[in-house]
Design a protein around this nucleic acid. Structure first.
Length: 444
RNA sequence: GCUGGAAUCGUCUAGUGGCAAUGACAAGAGACUGUAAAUCUCUCGGCUUCGGCCUUCGUAGGUUCGAGUCCUACUUCCAGCA
């Protein structure tokens, strides 16, 4: 992997650049669509290319039982994201399960083998582009101390940690014991397991196995988790180097910075991870992790990125609200990923230049979702009222259609935002772009 | 015409004398940030100084401390017989 910085924000940490991977280039800043199980829900690979997605983030934890099969396909980028019927993403209402009829209807010729369908009913075509996998570290938190909670950045200040015995994940020095929330099966992932899984999946970029703390965790616990994350990073690096070329192309590893909201921890872990090497080999980039509050996100990123080497790419994990992306880009994050654009689309929250709105309120509207939007949904002339009708219909096929159209729109919105940020950085007008965007979007 | 049965919030529905009344859907509001999420939370008769107050279960009477629940008549609908 090669990373080249093309232009920096004068006097700041932000930059525009290019990451070259074995499966293509990523022009940064860039948003990576989240396809946890190897595909973005309700969107085809073609859809992703059409909206300008440059890379897809999947999760080693969710794909852990299929990693050998993915390796056989030549790696995640070439894999047809098929889940067996017992897979974890089966529809909860039971009506969306692909049926034999679906398969035969989509088939064109009897002589051809039946197409492989994903759990969301779409054809399982390979994504083909650059990929990145998460280690499963997020699940340490979401199934552990953050179980049952929103990973909110704005509230949850006074939250109490989930009692240890109620958690679905238990952390030890060796790794994490999980209970699979879908089938109740016990499982274990540590740094070595995560690296072996990720190297079989074969994304271009991997995340070291880390422990993400929740906002409810104390300073003391954050020190413990961060130091453990550093020890896990070293073990991850060692195991990664062992397996990183096994699929015939070079896979890369990012270390993840934790440390919560404390400057001393953030700077210390950045320094430690930046100089960490095994046999002269260090990390290829860095993941900026943690549960953030909006009010100090920028500051935390500044602490991290002032310490990290400028020539290595940085991925801000799990954030994509426009203000967060703008702060991230300003403070030196190169790539982003987040479930919000697609999840919020499914829940009726639509992004526009003038802010977000809830589609529920536009039953009779003949307006498109956003004026001058270049997403496929708006270009095809879909109206708010028409989309609302699809969404609210009791028909699961129509709902799926809505999910696709709304996901395309919100994803395109965020991808376009990163494209415009990149352009503004290259033109030296980032600060102005940021001001104008925020003023319009948040109407402040 | 006779004999049974039924009428409850926009719709369907629970409801054994202590009920402003169950559940579902619809509707309305909110949440969602490395996906246990086609999910979750809240509202859903009116008014309220948040203590309550008022009006409600086809209509009109009645029994009772108290009636959506029991009785009578009427209205409408359903089924069976003519």
């Amino acid at each position: 992997m090669e990373f080249r910085v093309e232009k920096e924000i004068v006097g700041g940490l932000g930059r525009a650049g290019v990451i070259k991977t074995a499966h293509g280039e990523i022009k940064t800043p860039a948003f990576m669509a989240v396809g946890t199980r190897g595909y973005v829900r309700f969107l085809s690979a073609q859809d992703l290319h059409e909206i300008g997605a440059q890379a897809m983030l999947s999760n080693g934890y969710h794909l852990r039982r299929q990693s050998a099969q993915i390796a056989d396909s030549g790696g995640l980028s070439r894999w047809e994201p098929y889940q067996p019927a017992t897979g974890a993403d089966r529809p909860q209402n039971g009506s969306g399960e692909p049926t034999v009829q679906d398969a035969s209807r989509n088939d064109t010729k009897m002589s051809e083998k039946p197409p492989i369908l994903r759990p969301d009913g779409l054809l399982a075509n390979p994504w083909g582009g650059p990929t990145i996998t998460d280690s499963g570290g997020f699940q340490v938190m979401s199934l552990g101390s953050g179980l049952g909670k929103v990973v909110s950045m704005e509230k949850e200040r006074g939250v109490v940690n989930t009692a240890h015995k109620e958690r679905l994940a238990q952390v030890s020095e060796a790794g994490v014991d999980f209970t699979d929330p879908f089938d109740g099966q016990p499982d274990f992932i540590g740094p070595e397991e995560s690296m072996r899984i990720q190297c079989q999946i074969g994304a271009d970029i991997h995340m070291a196995f880390d422990e993400l703390t929740s906002l409810a965790d104390t300073y003391r616990y954050n020190i413990e988790a961060m130091e453990r994350t550093e020890r896990w990073a070293e073990r991850s690096l060692r195991e990664h180097i062992r397996h990183r070329d096994e699929l015939g192309y070079r896979q890369n590893l990012y270390a993840v910075l934790q440390g919560g909201r404390w400057e001393d921890l953030r700077r210390r872990t950045a320094q430690n991870l930046a100089k960490m090497q095994i046999g002269g080999v260090g990390f290829d980039g860095f993941g900026l992790g943690g549960a953030f509050l909006k009010e100090n996100l920028g500051e935390i990123l500044r602490w991290c990125n002032e310490e990290l080497p400028a020539e290595k790419p940085r991925h801000l994990l799990g954030l994509s609200h426009p203000d967060d992306i703008l702060i991230g880009a300003e403070m030196g994050a190169d790539t982003f990923d987040c479930v919000a654009p697609t999840r919020e689309a499914r829940h009726g929250k639509i992004y526009t230049r003038e802010g977000t709105f809830n589609l529920r309120k536009f039953a009779d509207s003949g307006k498109t979702l956003d004026q001058n939007c270049d997403c496929p949904t708006c270009r095809e002339g879909w109206t708010r009222g028409g989309l609302r009708a699809l969404w609210r219909s009791g028909n699961s096929e129509q709902k799926q259609k809505y999910y696709r159209l709304a996901s395309l729109h919100n994803l395109r919105f965020i991808i376009r935002l990163t494209e415009e940020i990149r352009q503004a950085i290259l033109e030296g007008s980032f600060a102005q772009y940021q001001d104008e965007f925020l003023q319009k979007f948040y109407q402040t």
